[in-house]
């Protein structure tokens, strides 16, 4: 059982010092989680630490591949609003 970091991570370092298992790897193009070390903070914290501080939606997935912070959950920006603005800017 392990979390993973996927594309979209901005390498902000917030998660790295919090990980009780030292499972976060500061690599490029973006940080990764060492699946052998990660135990999802089981028995250590009520909430997985990396997923609790990560500022970017959708870049941390749980063991089932489900985003811990789905679109809109952190910023409050409705995903359709973001998509519409992106389309609008692209059309200029």
């Amino acid at each position: 059982m392990a979390f993973q970091i996927v594309e979209g991570c901005v390498n902000c370092w917030a998660c790295l010092p919090l990980c009780p298992s030292q499972a976060i790897l500061a690599v490029k193009p973006h940080f990764l989680i060492d699946t052998w070390r990660c135990n999802e903070c089981e028995g250590q914290y009520a909430d997985p630490q990396c997923a609790s501080i990560c500022p970017v939606e959708g870049v941390i997935l749980d063991a089932l591949g489900i985003p811990s912070n789905p679109p809109g959950s952190l910023t409050g920006i409705p995903p359709e609003r973001r998509a519409a603005t992106r389309a609008e800017i692209g059309a200029r």
């Binding site: 901005v10 902000c12 010092p17 501080i53 500022p55 952190l74 910023t75």
Partner: peptide, 14 residues
């Protein structure tokens, strides 16, 4: 200092 411990509505870390 890259990490932040709060989110402000006027900021985008990306």
């Amino acid at each position: 200092a890259p990490a932040c411990n709060i989110q402000c509505h006027y900021c985008n870390r990306k």
